[in-house]
Design a protein around this nucleic acid. Structure first.
Lengths: 219, 219, 219, 219
DNA sequence: AATGAATGAGTTTTCATTCAT
DNA sequence: CATGAATGAAAACTCATTCAT
């Protein structure tokens, strides 16, 4: 029942696709089965319940995210920070990513009703906020940032990024030239990060970092 | 089918209670009916479909929120701004408010699947972001704030507030001394608002404003 | 509860309209109420049950039909017979009549499940078959028709007319130039009636009689 | 969803039984499920909707009827014709057949409201009227019948047979010695068919053909 | 005479889950 | 491993009917 087998992976992939296509609320075992070209009975052979499958799926993608964040530790702190922010910038054409984050939002809203889902969410929050705080702490120690409380600043950054993404995902496209996420990231950079930069330190331009990320993505 | 009658109000109240108790995703017409001590058939007598009822409910509470925001326009801008932020601060004991905002979050995650829900959400976003931008604009004109782009700063504030609330609602209580929302509001005040205050202007203490709001609530 | 009042008549009229619009199977009390601009509660004030109302309606229209058949008794038998047949000829444009007969067909198919409906249907059959037999009998006595068994010939005529109407109503329009009913009436005239005409007797042309009927209708 | 499996057949059989027992108008999926000793969920597993099931059922029985008519093509035309008519003769004791035809009549009255049902009905009309016309045409070519318009005569025959059946099914037993259908068939034979027989051709006695059919049925 | 509000008893349909094969 | 067949439990929605006013 661990899902570590070949079929297990195919099922988790199918779950991803199904979530993107149907969202979480309307997701049926049949939807997932269709997406993997398998029967629902097989899903139940690998995962006792629908909840088991979804928790396994959450676990799986959070693990992937952790791995991704674990790279780039060689970059200088101010670049790591911009990269961290830049990961939240979405252009409206990234349909699949958008619908996936929407499904995640749906699952997040179910956390309070489900112990196991909440445990996964807590873990992903730790990863996220921990990473931001760590970058800030490292930068402060390296003299790149002036003295700030890394935990509280990290909380602010993560809240703003998360809120921007949530609003961009759930609201109609109201922003003509800019996306909600990009606007908020730029404001964070200019109003929160730049004021705490030590003398002589400069942030890499956002567009450079975005270009770098998109290169990474496609490779 | 407008729901403006006595029964209509009772049904909307029951919907509120039912949302707090059961959340949105698992909400059945029976849950709402139970909460008003009425039959499901009656709900369908007043609202053709479940969707109709929920859209009417959203419309109802957004209207109420608008009315609430429409007060306080006499306060000076710096106080209005703090009040605006303070509205987002929750203490963990406010169970009912917490579960209500959770239900709202669930509904927000359904926006992309439902035209009518999204329309209501868009409207509520306009109210929220518009209010923040207006306070900033007024303050700038009155010389209370230094020159900032009111729309972009409002976007940042709203995103951070919204994200903080979302995280506080959906995550386990990880913050020892402070709530997530309070921490973020304090950071916004100290790192975003204070730097743009004109000389000689001082923000009212957050706790004063919170006390004021709670007095208002109970009256 | 007799329905002889003003409201009673309006209700029966509304029932007629509602049957034409919705058919019998999908007919709800609300449909009827809408058609009379009254409430369903009022329908129940005048008729205890839906069944009561429908039986009363059947009774009402069969009575009307009887009255209509009672005229024309002054015409010569061969003309009365052609008129009898001609009443069954429908052109496809007579939408309202078509949908009304469809509703009647639906009710007829409910006869076996409902004693009271069947009683009304039996009565209408007697009227119809009785009239045909009477015309034939009169004609035979008057020497206009050769010796036939009036009851059996009437049964044949009525069956063919009824079957033609049923098929015309229920089937897609397959007949290009002629309607099903008209074709069958013409065949009945040429193959069943003409062979039994006494020497020297001639049937009035079908089109003349049809024109006469339509003049009657509009007056 | 084709219903060609074992279960599919059991479900169609159950549908037949349920139609005979409950009629079409009051038929619920539960009735059908009961009749097959299966759950309603299973019905929906094989047929997406109730309509799908009923259309499949109509298709099934019309197919069976076509097969039945396809036999007997070796008989001489005059015998085929009598057999064709004789198929419509019912004795009142044939309860099951009676209730089945009643259910069919109910479905026919729904044709105008349902595209797919009407398509099936049209097909069955073609089969029926086409067969009658073909027998007449063959007989005319073989010199057994005098010159008649096969299509128009077929229309008359089918209308009369159909009408007779409809009346017999829907009306109380008003005919003392004979059934409605038998009376009409006898009249058709003596007043419509016999006059067009070529010299020397004789129709087989109706009772012989009926006996033959009933032998066929029980075998 | 007339109605709005209210309901009980259904009806179709959905879906996670099970089980024999 | 894998599936088709099967089901119980629930959900939204409908409708004739009732009742207080």
């Amino acid at each position: 029942m661990s899902g570590e087998s070949v079929a297990g992976d195919e099922i988790l992939d199918g779950t991803h696709s199904a979530l993107c296509t149907h969202g979480y609320a309307d997701l049926t075992m049949q939807d997932i089965a269709d997406e993997c070209d398998r029967s629902t009975a097989l899903l139940h052979y690998h995962y006792d319940t629908k909840e088991d499958l979804l928790v396994a799926f959450l676990d799986h993608i959070i693990g992937e995210y952790e791995e991704k964040l674990a790279t780039e530790t060689d970059d200088p702190p101010e670049r790591r920070l911009v990269t961290f922010l830049a990961r939240f910038v979405y252009t409206p054409d990234e349909d699949r990513r958008q619908s996936f984050h929407l499904a995640l939002l749906e699952m997040r809203s179910q956390g309070p009703f489900n112990e196991r889902i909440r445990a996964e969410l807590d873990r992903s929050d730790e990863v996220l906020r921990g990473t931001a705080a760590e970058v800030l702490r490292n930068g402060t120690e390296a003299g790149v940032f002036e003295q700030v409380d890394p935990d509280r600043t990290a909380a602010l950054l993560v809240a703003a990024l998360d809120g921007a993404r949530t609003r961009q995902i759930t609201l109609g496209d109201g922003q003509p030239e800019d996306t909600y996420t990009r606007a908020v990231v730029e404001e964070l950079l200019s109003q929160v990060i730049e004021p705490i930069l030590a003398d002589g330190v400069e942030l890499p331009p956002l567009d450079d970092v975005l270009a770098e990320l998109s290169r990474e993505e496609t490779s």
